[in-house]
């Protein structure tokens, strides 16, 4: 049991890191890209649950089905190293990118945030483990039934498992759609508030991360935490862009995505060129020549000053 919990922990943490490698220069695209992998993560969770259930069910089957289980286990074992290698390969690039873009202050912020995230994930892991532990006694009790009913019960169990799997899939899909819809709303609200005032934007962001209540106790789900991380990363990027004039100028040169055209236009409006007059071809040539003239004063050399 302890071993299984460790594997889940590493796998749950890695997707977040892997998603960081798919960064985009546009704030909107960053949100979209960061949100997209949630479906993959959900599917992975489903796979884990399936694996768990299959293993538990197979323990009660005759030796012949056990061979099938071994084959499946081998398949799982083969997959794990590949995933691990992929993640390892992705880390350096991601790390270098972050290192280049982050400022010392941001690095400190990043360091401050990591322990909390780690603790949260640990707590989640523990909770899931406890929940899984609670399930085991119920299943053991079922084993006390008579042999005559064993075959019937096996069939029932199999059927129930299938039904449960289908229900879980539907719930997962619905949940994913709801989450996606919420995130889109959040992005829209965020865009609207950005045009109004930074304070309002902060307020909207605060609302987004309000945890749902379960038995009158606020609990952050994995999805909420992922969204919070995305928002924080997006905020950091926006801050760095606004704070660095060169980047702001460079970003304006890039062709903005269609969804962000209004935001870009607003930025352009806020930073006019100052009404420069266009020069004729003669003055432009003279200006170009002036730029070639060396700035050094008092030069006594016979060479031309450009």
């Amino acid at each position: 049991m302890a071993t299984e919990c460790g594997v889940n922990k590493s796998r749950r943490f890695d997707p977040g890191m892997s998603r960081r490698t798919r960064r985009s220069t546009s704030l909107i695209v960053c949100y979209q890209d960061q949100h997209a992998p949630s479906l993959v993560q959900q599917l992975r969770q489903d796979d884990k649950l399936k694996t768990l259930f299959q293993r538990q069910g197979m323990e009660l089957q005759p030796p012949y089905p056990y061979e099938d289980q071994e084959l499946q286990s081998e398949g799982d074992e083969q997959e794990t190293p590949n995933r691990y290698h992929d993640e390892q390969e992705e880390k350096p690039h991601h790390y270098l990118d972050e290192e280049q873009e982050k400022k010392p202050f941001q690095d400190q912020d990043g360091e401050r945030k990591t322990p909390k995230q780690y603790l949260d994930e640990d707590q989640k892991t523990v909770q899931q483990c406890q929940y899984e532990d609670k399930k085991v006694p119920n299943q053991c009790k079922d084993e006390e039934n008579t042999p005559g009913q064993y075959q019937d019960e096996e069939q029932k169990i199999a059927k129930q498992c299938k039904e449960e799997e289908e229900e879980e899939e539907e719930n997962a899909l619905e949940k994913y759609q709801d989450e996606e819809h919420k995130s889109l709303k959040a992005q829209h609200q965020c865009q609207d508030t950005e045009r109004k005032a930074p304070g309002q934007c902060k307020t909207a962001k605060t609302k987004l991360i309000t945890p749902p209540c379960a038995n009158d106790v606020p609990r952050f789900s994995l999805q909420d935490l992922i969204q919070e991380k995305q928002l924080l990363i997006g905020e950091a990027k926006a801050t760095s862009k606004l704070g660095n004039g060169k980047k702001a100028i460079a970003d304006r040169k890039l062709p903005p995505p269609p969804a962000a055209s209004s935001a870009t236009l607003a930025m352009v409006i806020k930073r006019p060129d100052g009404g420069k007059k266009s020069m004729g071809v003669i003055r432009r040539c003279v200006q170009a020549l002036n730029q070639m003239v060396k700035a050094k004063h008092g030069s006594k050399k016979n060479k031309p000053p450009f």
Binding site: G280, V286, L289, V293, K300
Partner: peptide
């Protein structure tokens, strides 16, 4: 016609003045 002043390079003129006052 374009005024002759349009063709004047202020930097080159300054450079020449510096040389002539040496």
């Amino acid at each position: 016609v374009v005024p002759q002043q349009e063709f004047v390079s202020a930097k080159l003129t300054d450079k020449l003045e510096q040389q002539m006052h040496d």
